[in-house]
């Protein structure tokens, strides 16, 4: 993470992290209109804009929680860029290749481009993680879920009716397995931050 001083708009990130409804409302009031306008101008509608905004906010939330996201540019530029990218990717998925987006997906704000890249990378990593977790054996999935839901490994061992030592060992081996699967994925190299 950057050591740069956080932008005053960091308050939006913190508000989101803390599940502050007032801040979330402020984000919608201030920053949603631009996104909605952009999507509606580019083969989309209000409902699709609504989905994009919600998805982007959740990615920001995830990144803020896991990576302690620090905003180094105005939230507006960062958020708009993320929404544009996400919409562009959706259009590509729908095979609307003929559709040319009306603007380049680059912000005038240098910091925003950098931060958007980091968030997009984070999002791809998260997707790879989820996909690989789904491919993990069921016993590993169960043990990992329990290990992280319940804060004590002793209780986890009791619940799964296994020894404490085995539970701990199994946990590290399961995370190790998942680590390996991710590292061996063809996408992994592109996602190294």
């Amino acid at each position: 993470m950057s050591v740069q001083k956080a932008h005053p708009d960091q308050k939006y990130i913190e508000g989101l992290k803390q599940d502050n409804s007032f801040v979330i409302r402020e984000i919608y009031d201030k920053f949603a209109p631009k996104v909605i306008h952009f999507i509606c101008q580019n083969n989309g509608d209000d409902a699709q804009a609504k989905d994009v905004i919600q998805e982007v906010l959740l990615v920001i939330y995830d990144q803020a929680c896991i990576k302690d996201l620090k905003l180094t540019c105005p939230f507006d530029a960062y958020f708009f860029l993320l929404c544009k990218r996400r919409w562009y990717n959706k259009l590509k998925k729908k095979k609307l290749d003929t559709v040319t987006i009306k603007e380049e997906i680059v912000s005038e704000h240098e910091g925003a481009n950098h931060l958007e890249f980091e968030t997009s990378l984070f999002q791809d990593q998260q997707e790879l993680f989820k996909r690989m977790f789904g491919e993990l054996g069921k016993s590993c999935q169960d043990l990992l879920k329990k290990s992280f839901e319940i804060d004590s490994m002793k209780k986890v061992a009791e619940k799964l009716d296994i020894s404490y030592a085995y539970a701990r060992k199994k946990k590290s081996l399961c995370i190790g397995k998942l680590t390996e699967m991710i590292q061996n994925s063809p996408h992994y190299k592109n996602l190294k931050s």
Binding site: F148, D151, L178, T179
Partner: peptide, 19 residues
Amino acid sequence: TYQQVSDQLKHEFTHYSEK
């Protein structure tokens, strides 16, 4: 990578209700 995976798992399952 192990650490990242561990962080993800914590976020997904430990903080499930927050999310």
